[in-house]
Amino acid sequence: MRALLVVNPRATTTTERSRDVLVRALSSAVKLSVAYTERRGHATTLARDAAESGVDVVVTLGGDGTVNEAVNGLLTTSAALADRPGPIADRLPALAVVPGGSTNVFARALGMPGDWADGTSVILDGLRDGRHRVIGLGRADDRYFTFTAGIGWDAATIRRVEQARRRGRTSTPGLYLRSTVSQFFLGMDRADPPLTLERPGETPATELSTVIVQNTAPWTYLGDRPVHLNPDASFELGLDVAALRRLTIPGSARTVTQLAWRAGDPRGKQVLRLHDITEFTVMASRPQAFQLDGDYLGERQKVHFVSVPSALRVIC
């Protein structure tokens, strides 16, 4: 069995020594090649080239951004795009994820241990036993995501966090909470909600301030605490949506409190929730911040979302 290990050398929870240990462990089970990412988007190219060359497994060591890039590499190979019968997952290499980032939402949603060494043990057992899980993905226009996408407040918050990290700040739950509050009071036009959500055959939902899409639960984590916007979201179902209407101070304070202290599941007349959706489009009257799997991707005025079932085999 051939495998490629895609390493983000900036992964926050691993060291050069731990990476060497990981390489030796994986080499005991597969014929392993190792590649290091050099820039943003590089993991996409590495995973795509590996799939085209016939690799059986792509292993990532990094955070959710590295995983997202690798998944997009796999899902844009000629095999994935070919018009063949059967699930896409059967045509592609399997994915294995070693948690190495600060949050690792995707790995934790799969039930993987948070520690890279324990996660490696699970992967080795799965390789030896031939064990894997088939999951669905989300697609936003032409890019896939594993657990979440967002337009509006949450994406603008991620933009603030990324700006702070470039200034040398450490990614912590406190930084995310402070960025969320700062964005609400200083960065949002709360009087004029810009978003509309359209579904085939349904009345459009208008005057939305932010739209968050989930492909699984939880939405994210605050430290060790899972945060649930749509607790019934699942890799085996379509997409779930949580949208906030007008961002009034009392309503938004209630929602943030529910997320921060009760681990989520917010409700109220300002919250729109949709479960197990196959396809929809979000449009904005002015450019809005956009994120996929916790990475800020610039601003958009229209994004088309699709659920992609049985898209990927994951060793877990």
Rank of each mutant, 00 (worst) to 15 (best):
Q258R: 13
R39H: 13
N8Y: 07
A29S: 14
M283G: 01
Y221G: 08
D83A: 13
I212G: 01
A243N: 06
S307N: 14
Y296N: 09
A47N: 03
P226N: 06
T203N: 06
D49K: 12
G168D: 02
R199C: 13
M1D: 00
I249W: 06
R139P: 07
A284R: 06
S27M: 07
A260V: 13
S53M: 05
R160D: 10
P93V: 05
G168F: 03
Q258K: 07
D240R: 00
A253H: 05
E162L: 04
D90T: 12
W116N: 03
H304K: 10
I158R: 14
T220I: 02
A205L: 15
T13K: 15
S209I: 10
S121K: 13
L229N: 00
S27C: 04
F147A: 08
Y144K: 04
Q288D: 01
L5W: 10
R267C: 10
R160V: 02
L110D: 07
V57A: 09
D118V: 08
V97K: 06
R273Y: 04
W153H: 13
N230C: 15
Q270D: 15
T15A: 04
D115I: 09
G100V: 05
R273P: 04
V30D: 01
G138P: 07
R131D: 12
S27F: 00
F280Q: 09
R286P: 02
L222F: 10
A140I: 01
V271P: 05
T77K: 09
L4P: 02
V21F: 13
R167T: 07
N8I: 04
R19T: 13
R10G: 14
D232A: 14
R139N: 07
P250A: 00
T148Q: 12
P173N: 08
S27D: 11
V134W: 12
Q258T: 11
V213G: 03
V30R: 15
E299S: 11
